[in-house]
C-alpha cells in the first residue's frame, strides 16, 4: 500500500518520507504536584492537577488510548526525509487518502464510453 501526504512545505510526497506521530489528542495533561496537590502550570483540566489519581488516569488515557475509528481523523506527521517539519493533517485510515474532517472522500466515477446495453 502506498499513499501520499501533503506536506505544508514540500507538497505531496510519498508516505515513506514521513513518520507518524499518532492522531491529534491535544497537549499533554498537566502533571499532579505530589507535594502541594495544587494545579500545575500548563494544564487545561482544573480537576486533574488537584487529584493525583485523576491526573494519572487522565495521563494514562491521553498516552495510551487511541480510538481507531475508520473515519477521517486529524493526525501528526513528520517530514523527516524532507523539510523536517511536524504538521497535522486530516486523513481517512479506511482509504488512506487525505480527507476533510467528517466529509466524504473523493470518490470514483462512472466509466465513460459507449453505453453497452
Amino acid at each position: 500500500m502506498t499513499f501520499r501526504l501533503t506536506c505544508p512545505v514540500c507538497g505531496k510526497r510519498d508516505v515513506y518520507e514521513f513518520t507518524y506521530g499518532g492522531p491529534e489528542r491535544g497537549p499533554r495533561p498537566a502533571e499532579a504536584d505530589p507535594a502541594s496537590g495544587s494545579q500545575a502550570a500548563g494544564g487545561s483540566d482544573p480537576a486533574a492537577g488537584s487529584d493525583p489519581a485523576a491526573a494519572a488516569e487522565a495521563h494514562f488515557r491521553w498516552a495510551q488510548f487511541r480510538m481507531n475509528r475508520p473515519e477521517p481523523q486529524e493526525e501528526w506527521w513528520h517530514h523527516g526525509a524532507g523539510c523536517g517539519v511536524w504538521f497535522s493533517t486530516w486523513r481517512d485510515p479506511a482509504t488512506n487518502r487525505e480527507a476533510p474532517p467528517g466529509g466524504a472522500e473523493a470518490g470514483g466515477h462512472e466509466a465513460s464510453g459507449r453505453d453497452s446495453s
Binding site: A106, G107, G108, H109, E110, A111, G113, S116
Partner: peptide
Amino acid sequence: FELERLPP
C-alpha cells in the same frame, strides 16, 4: 465483465 466504476 464490463467496467462499472473507476477510481479517482
